[in-house]
């Protein structure tokens, strides 16, 4: 920063780093996977619906195929029967990929501390953002999106290879 960028700024030119440009691009069109499990999936749909309108954040295009998605929103409780399927879906997503655990059940088991439910989806996939609530309001999910965007913007060149 300093002399040259100030001068170029006056000429209507923006200088940035490749990291920042790529990360900015990734946050503007992040495609979530169309994948709902339980109650939270209904609130996830409300987030897409007119009142909350997730397309304001570039998050409206839900892809039914994991091969086209960047973000897996785990919306609902993950059962032991579903866990291998979920991992399978995660493995099918192309890099870079992120996981958002929506709601208490998939964050930590929630009210269902029993034989059937995986006590936190982070046992099977790496989670980037946890959203609390049972189910979280759409505002909370949008806050989760924005938190994820902040995280993506902080990513370094060296993180790209591992992400």
């Amino acid at each position: 920063m300093g002399g040259i960028s100030e001068k170029l700024g006056n000429m209507g030119v923006v200088t940035t780093t490749l990291e920042q440009a790529v990360n900015w691009g990734r946050t503007r069109a992040m495609w979530p996977m169309l994948f709902g499990l339980a109650c939270c999936a209904i609130e996830m749909m409300s987030t897409q619906a007119p009142r909350y309108d997730a397309s304001r954040f570039g998050m409206e295009l839900m892809r039914a195929s994991p091969r086209q998605s960047d973000l897996m929103i785990v919306a609902g409780r993950v059962t032991r029967k579903m866990a291998p399927v979920l991992r399978h879906l995660y493995d099918q997503m192309p890099d870079p990929k992120w996981v958002l655990a929506m709601g208490d059940c998939c964050s930590c088991g929630g009210v269902f501390n029993n034989y059937a439910i995986v006590q936190g989806v982070d046992e099977i996939v790496p989670v980037d953002v946890y959203v609390a609530g049972c189910p979280p309001r759409p505002e909370q999910l949008i806050h989760g999106f924005l938190t994820l965007h902040e995280k993506v913007k902080e990513m370094r060149w060296s993180d790209w290879a591992t992400k």
């Binding site: 409780r77 399927v85 059937a116």
Partner: peptide
Amino acid sequence: GYLHTGIEKN
């Protein structure tokens, strides 16, 4: 059974 939650047992 992919969403069997054990609600009745809980």
